[in-house]
Amino acid sequence: MKKSLSILVAFALCGLDAASASSPSDNDIVIITKDGVEPARGGKLPKNSNGTLFLRSAVEPAAKPTPKPTPKPTPKPKPTPALSVSKPTPEPIKPVQKTAAESKNPTIRIQKKAAPAPAGYDLDEYSQVASIPDPAEPLNRGTFWLNHQLYNYLLRPVSKAYEFILPSPARKAIHNVFDNVEYPVRVVNHALQLEFKRADLETRKFVVNSVAGVGGILRVSDRIPELANIPPADTGQTFAKWGIGHGAYVVLPVLGPRSVRDTAGMAGDYALNPVSWLAYGGVTGATALAVSGPSAARNMNSRINLYDAATQNAIDPYIAVRSGYIQYRDKAASK
């Protein structure tokens, strides 16, 4: 009874292979002793033995065929986002064959530098930078061309006249005043982005420049380290931080490049800018123009400088501006 039970257990242990085998011969039944595995003579336990009978296949590992190394596909270089960290494509690691001497006396080798990568391994480094859908490209190119004429033949002369009439310190003072007045745009957007520390610093900067800087003419805050480099904030950037994508690329007349998201953001900036409140604040048209005129002039001035910087020496000025705009806005959203 005991023997039958042992054989049954052995069958169960062997799984399907044993179960599917025909009835075991005497040589297939073994006993485990202190000297090793021995065949059970006649398929029975010796007298006075407390051992257990086993199937040979259950106690001896079957000789497994050596697995053939499967050829691995050559790793393709993954495209790396350029503004993030750019890494060289790792080369496949080859198994190192040790010599007999090395196996006996293993030594640690410190390789200071990897072997120089072959030229061309890094060609895909910038493949994912500054991409934005541009479904209305023909229309956008048309508007871009119109803006180019407008900048070159109307706004650039006006901008130069503005630079000629007003010396640099005066232009700087006008820039500072309007930048200070645009405080609500920044503080509200910092708050909407849950950057309350920045909102607090922005408020301190506004107070310091308005009081000590004589209404914002002087940018006293630049002398206070913690107020000198507060990241800018606008409504388009807030939308980006909320996870809203760019949408399509558009070129607006006069204003130039925008994404759909940033065009919507402009409405927020306009509503938050005190200069634009004048038009609705009961002041005369002349007063509103007198106040908003210098603001428009300084914006135009910086817009033309930016346009020149982006298009000079470009292969295709339209694509250069589009790529530059998207990279710039993505960076602003990451601050």
């Binding site: 350029a82 910038y126 930078v129 292969i315 790529s323 993505d330 960076k331 602003a332």
Partner: peptide
């Protein structure tokens, strides 16, 4: 050289791609 987030190489890359 990356000025205000705009990479010089990336900017030319988008232009060369089209060409």
């Amino acid at each position: 050289v990356v000025i205000e987030g705009v990479s010089m190489v990336a900017n030319y890359r988008t232009q060369f791609d089209a060409e």
